[in-house]
Nucleic acid binder design. Structure first.
Lengths: 199, 199
DNA sequence: TTTTATTGATTGATCAGTCAATCAAAATTA
DNA sequence: TAATTTTGATTGACTGATCAATCAATAAAA
């Protein structure tokens, strides 16, 4: 069966499988065997390409992050005014695929892992910074710099909080409700500064 | 050595130890041996009193939750006006001991565990509901019911989000900044309804 | 023939959970 | 009170299962 150039194919399949297994299982305590089985290869092959479980996991967060970044870049490009860009950033955070229970479970598992794995933590810090700075860039055009900083901080926290709370699956808040809650926060926080082309 | 009445003493010691070990390790993947060692007893004794690791872990969340509830009850009793009660609830969420890295790590680990353990999930749902309803009770005295619902949802999310973001330990926000961010949100959200004895 | 892909079989380590045995306080009996 | 029995507390040693990681072997391209 060995065709050449399998490496990238298998790597992708294994990362996808890892994401699925982690999402279903709701934890990083998943076995290489299970991931490999999902990817349709032997556990030994997973080790062959990734060296260790930890490395595969790290590639998996990296992938999760890349997806989100690509979506954010695309959404920001489509938006033009600062206010539109703000809404675009919020919308991406609550996209349907990001809101899928398995995706939420995977993010949560990686958050927990970040307490132990310095490398995982680094990736999540990048995510947190990016969300904050995406918000901040637009907010600075809509209000004074110091207020913008605070609002960005608050909005990022609210987004993450809505996301986390979703993981408990009790009284789940819809995508639209989550978006409008965040938008409302920004609107009322910005209401004190009617200088920019607010709303 | 066997004195009578050791059971409650050992149970408490083991739960305390579990909390410490989980907090330090930043994960629920800790061994019974490690927990028992911290508590100064043999692993066998931990099994003797708790039956299983899962059960010990569940008692541990329960304890974490009870602490928070007791603090909230005390703080609410000391506050009198709705606005004071609101601030009390917020303050308790960001108390120093709740903000300690180990405590945050433990909460996070349990959030992840909730994806797998129905019982753990139930406890966290109780926490989430309680936070929301504590906020809601006071907010209803300060604005119309439907707005109160939304603000409670938003504030609870912001609190959880600030908490989670703290776990990444990058650009950590101080206790005071977290509190004032949440207070500001409530104030500006409430600003539209100058009916109650707002602020 | 060399290189790449792939696996089955195996190893070594780690752990949760069990169990039989010990020890000493408390209760009971003489 | 002294002797004896019972009971709770405690552990060391063991077991069975699970898993990450390794490796030697095979098969098919190039």
């Amino acid at each position: 069966m060995p065709k050449l150039g399998m490496e990238p194919v298998r790597r992708k399949a294994l990362v996808d499988a890892a994401l699925r297994v982690i999402g279903d299982h709701g934890s990083l305590s998943v076995t290489m065997s299970e991931i490999a089985r999902q990817a349709g290869v032997s556990p030994a092959l997973a080790h062959h390409y990734f060296g260790s479980k930890e490395q595969l996991l790290i590639e998996t967060v990296r992938f999760l992050l890349k997806q989100l970044r690509d979506d954010a870049v695309a959404a920001l490009k489509a938006a033009h005014t600062p206010r539109e860009k703000l809404s675009a950033v919020i919308r991406v955070s609550f996209q349907a695929d990001q809101f899928a229970p398995q995706t939420i479970a995977a993010w949560l598992a990686f958050y927990a892992e970040a307490q132990r794995s310095e490398e995982t933590r680094r990736f999540l810090v990048i995510y947190a910074r990016r969300l904050r700075s995406n918000l901040l860039a637009s907010l600075k055009a809509l209000g004074p710099a110091d207020a913008a900083e605070r609002i960005a901080e608050g909005a990022a926290a609210m987004i993450d909080g809505l996301y986390i709370r979703q993981s408990l699956k009790s009284a789940p808040i819809s995508i639209e409700a989550s978006i409008s809650l965040t938008e409302d926060y920004i609107n009322s926080a910005l209401a004190a500064f009617p200088k920019g082309q607010n709303q």
